[in-house]
């Protein structure tokens, strides 16, 4: 399985994501610099977390207009799987590949902690290794993770089953207390309509081995692997 991690100036989870991809899939990804207008054909494109361009203007706004993203959008529209984590999710909404926007957290503070997530769909290339309704624990670390879209858009993504994961309690129930950032519908991650693009605020790459405190994040990478190798 061949994957690419896109590196923007200010990305800071690019190494973590590459390490996780290699540890879980056994294949080392290529690192693609933001200025490159073209890159090798790959099976998965991953957009890492961090502060691309310092989050200046708006988180993800400038990265979405970088040369490499034109190519990423083109390939995503052709069906190539694209996974955006944290800042990568913000970049994906800024390019329009995913609907909605990520606003400043409701309490206006950066938040870094483990959260519980309910896996809403398991028939997708990113989540097939989880059980439907499974509750997993992985961390968030962001200042702008408050998912927002207008009412029509929310209805559409809910009706289409585009919600991938939602913030929940340890027992899987939804409450304001289990929502770390004020996201509408406790939404933590969404697919595009075709299902080949996933954006999520939580960081699965940070919990892929017990030494780090858990391995619930592995499933996302194992799922892609399963899909592509099968």
């Amino acid at each position: 399985m061949k994957s690419a991690v896109i590196v923007f100036p200010g990305s800071n989870c690019d190494r973590d994501l590459a390490v996780a991809l290699e540890k879980v899939t056994g294949f080392r990804p290529i690192m693609v610099w933001h200025g490159e207008a073209d890159f090798d054909k790959v099976d998965l494109i991953a957009l890492p977390g961090g502060f691309s361009y310092g989050d200046y203007l708006r988180a993800g706004a400038m990265a979405a207009r970088s040369p490499v993203m034109k190519e990423v959008v083109k390939r995503a529209n052709r069906g190539v799987p694209v996974l955006g984590i944290c800042n990568g999710f913000q970049v994906l909404t800024e390019t329009g590949l995913l609907p909605g926007a990520l606003m400043r957290n409701a309490n206006l503070k950066f938040v870094c902690k483990d959260v519980w997530l309910k896996v809403e769909r398991t028939d997708t290339i990113f989540t097939n290794r989880y059980a439907r309704g499974q509750v997993i624990r992985i961390p968030v670390a962001h200042h702008d993770g408050n998912y927002f879209a207008d009412a029509d858009t929310i209805r559409r993504i809910e009706d289409n089953g585009q919600v991938a994961v939602r913030y929940c309690d340890a027992d899987g129930s939804f409450s304001p207390a289990s929502n770390p950032n004020g996201s509408i519908g406790n939404i933590a991650g969404i697919f595009n309509e075709a299902g080949n693009v996933l954006g999520m605020m939580p960081h699965p790459e940070r919990l892929i081995e017990p030494a780090l405190g858990g391995a619930d994040g592995r499933g996302f990478f194992e799922s892609v692997m399963q899909e592509l190798v099968a």
Binding site: C13, R15, A20, G49, K109, F110, C112, A141, E205, L212
Partner: peptide
């Protein structure tokens, strides 16, 4: 305080 600090980036924090 420490939940406002990213204490896990670099994915090597084995004791938080």
């Amino acid at each position: 305080i420490w939940e406002q600090y990213d204490h896990m980036v670099m994915a090597d924090t084995v004791q938080r």
